[in-house]
Design a protein around this nucleic acid. Structure first.
Length: 217
DNA sequence: TGCCAGGCCGGGT
DNA sequence: ACCCGGCATGGC
């Protein structure tokens, strides 16, 4: 779907932080502000003040928190990789994931989004939609926490970043259209017709047949 | 008008 | 190991 609307890996990372619990349309304004201020590079963002940064990312909500998080990431990148994303992404996946989780403001979903969408590391991104869909379809054994869902998907599909990318994109679209919070349970969702389902392949097949409008791209 | 959006942190059990 | 309040703007 080529759905993550970013021009560079750094912009993907910025978007991943800014979109935390926030509608993408608000993130777009914030990123436009950053672009206008020529701050969409690790070096420039490292030099700007947190207060100035906060003003620019204001439309994305939680703006003081997010300014702090962006600063924390570029500081981490500078300290550990001399500001080079290329060098950062040369780090083995599991090791880099642990490092990212240490950074203030980067939790499991943001870390995995960075790994997959900015670095093309083969990890599956679990988000609110993934949780809701997999829980409603009872695809995961036991309590469907983040690591269980991730382990289930990653062990059910070939370890291929392009596939994880596409699969997650399809899930988010399915979620936006049919699995929003408060929506009638599975009402109109194309996945419903595939119950009982016990493999993500079924979800992938079903999702491919649905309209793909409404994405952030 | 109120609910929700592709979370995460820090402090409490 | 959970659980919860706080963080904040903009669209429907």
């Amino acid at each position: 779907m080529h759905w993550w609307p970013a021009r560079t890996p750094f912009e993907v990372i910025v978007g991943a932080i800014l979109t935390q619990s926030t509608a993408w349309v608000n993130v777009e304004r914030a990123i436009a502000n950053l672009r206008g201020a020529r701050l969409l590079s690790p070096g420039a963002m490292g030099r700007v003040s947190a207060a100035r940064l906060a003003g620019l990312v204001r439309p994305s909500g939680y703006f003081r928190q997010k300014a702090k998080k962006l600063k924390a990431f570029v500081r981490f990148l500078q300290r550990n990789y001399s500001g080079s994303l290329t060098r950062m992404f040369e780090t083995p996946t599991a090791q880099l994931r642990e490092q990212l989780l240490e950074v203030h403001g980067i939790g499991p979903e943001t870390a995995d989004s960075i790994l997959l969408y900015a670095g093309e590391h083969p990890v599956f991104v679990v988000d609110a939609y993934t949780h809701r869909i997999f829980e409603r379809h009872a695809l995961v054994e036991g309590k469907p926490d983040y690591e269980r869902v991730r382990a289930f998907v990653e062990s059910s599909l070939p370890r291929d970043s392009a596939l994880f990318n596409e699969f997650h994109a399809l899930i988010v679209n399915t979620g936006k259209n049919w699995c929003r919070k408060g929506a009638p349970r599975c009402d109109g969702c194309p996945l419903r017709d595939f119950l009982p389902v016990n493999s993500p392949y079924f979800a992938l097949t079903a999702s491919s047949a649905m309209p793909l409008s409404g994405g952030p791209a």
